[in-house]
Design a protein around this nucleic acid. Structure first.
Lengths: 261, 261
DNA sequence: TCACCTTATTTGGGATCCCAAAGTCAAGCT
DNA sequence: AGCTTGACTTTGGGATCCCAAATAAGGTGA
């Protein structure tokens, strides 16, 4: 378990993203102290953290104000993350030592293929796919030769759907049979992009690796935009972000909690 | 003036980057307290900030350790920043409202041209050029339509040479007449890239805008690599980062301090 | 009645205190 | 002599206290 302030920051962040605080609401240290039963020290550390992330802003002399992110912010962030991933793909495609890690990518692709073919779009299988998806994307970030890319990505993933390898679903879409089929198709399409990326990296086709990865990331942007078009007042709350880190090299037990947001 | 912890963080950061702490050195709260004559509260806030930036790491239960950045880290960061800027250039090139801000870019280009033509490579003129350079780059970030790009860039500029629009020089190169001429030529070349970027954005040539901006950023990478080749054990200390923010829309007085690092 | 000044209260920043955990050193036992 | 175990010390996390600044409210004078 992390220290109190980290966990506290996560809770407040969760509340802000979920919209429990209302736009522009004032947020006071004292309030947080007694709602979460902690002292002011960890509260201040947590608030500093959130300020750094842009989720709250500290007014010159007087208190903190919520800066609730909108769907558009998520879109922008996903675009940035995708662009960084495309750089990673390009660098990995021109890295001489890439062949050692290619099997990891291949295994992830195969596993997703297997899960998609099964067609059981339940929570367990989706989480399994998400895990493999995260493996695929994280591996590219880790093995591209520029550690700063992964570092930057980790700094900007304040929300579950911004984590590398996260998958986003509409909250309602998974409840209907037709929606499940559509989602399944989407995943199938995504994995075929994975295959192209894999081949481009393997053969050292830097341009293609970068381009397809960009397109791959753009898919999520387009997907969310479709929601936006269908539902005028879409909020972040309406999206389900399947995230959950895993496969750290410390081999810690899978902390893939459900981050429904 | 910012609050104490921010300023304290800047000082510690400065020390770390300058190499005053030695690789892997332990760093204690108490020590910092009496060397900087402050209490532990701001020290802890500052250390948290630096930990977040990756300049120190917090060992599980025991103290902080310095994570001094190497030249290679700077190279990686510059590459990331450049890649983000290339995205911004592309987005701006396809933004319909870009024509309103084009004059700003043009003015910056002209001013740099004027300064380069004068050929006086003294501290004042270099700083003036740096300022216009920052204007150019910041304008693109601000007007590309994706605010998250600029946000991300601001989050990763822990060091002076990582700030948007910063210019880097070798510490010795500016001391000789021949070095000054070479630097002047480099700036001239850079500004001609500015012109190409400007024209690409103006005409809506998204591919060219992105490509040239990437190349433009890559110039700094190559420049530093030349140093590295010439001087085997190059440290960050050997680089001069001309930075200094300005032109915020709050129109605060130019805080362009010399950040020789 | 309105404006301005004064006072009281809210709020955040900084300092100090306390405590638990981990590292260190030394002494005693095998 | 080497290993183990105990106490001591160092260090960081959390809680509480104090203070300055700013806002808000109330009262007084024009």
């Amino acid at each position: 378990m992390e220290s109190i302030d980290t966990e506290l920051a996560a809770r407040i962040r969760h509340d802000i993203v979920l919209g429990n605080y209302g736009e522009e609401e004032r947020i006071s240290e004292a309030r947080l102290c007694d709602t979460h039963n902690v002292s002011r020290t960890p509260v201040r550390l947590a608030l500093r953290m959130l300020e750094h992330e842009g989720l709250i802003r500290r007014s010159e002399g007087r208190g903190y104000f919520v800066n609730a992110p909108k769907v558009n912010d998520v879109l922008q962030a996903v675009q940035v993350r995708g662009h960084l991933e495309s750089l990673a793909a390009r660098l990995m495609a021109q890295s001489p030592g890439r062949h050692n890690t290619l099997p990891i990518l291949e295994a992830a692709i195969d596993e997703i293929d297997r899960l998609v073919s099964a067609g059981t779009m339940n929570d367990v299988s989706i989480r399994a796919m998400q895990k493999q998806n995260a493996v695929f994307h994280k591996t590219i970030l880790d093995c591209c030769g520029n550690d700063f890319i992964g570092f930057t990505c980790s700094r900007i993933s304040h929300m579950p759907m911004l984590e590398v390898g996260a998958m986003v679903f509409d909250r309602q879409v998974l409840s209907t049979k037709e929606g499940k089929e559509r989602s399944n198709f989407r995943l199938q399409l995504g994995n075929s992009q994975h295959k192209v990326i894999f081949e481009a990296i393997q053969s050292g086709d830097v341009v293609r690796a970068e381009g397809v990865m960009r397109e791959h990331s753009n898919t999520m942007v387009e997907y969310i935009k479709v929601f936006e078009k269908r539902n005028e007042e879409l909020t972040i709350k309406d999206l389900i972000g399947y995230s959950g880190i895993s496969v750290t090299r410390h081999e810690r037990a899978e902390t893939a909690q459900e981050t429904v947001i």
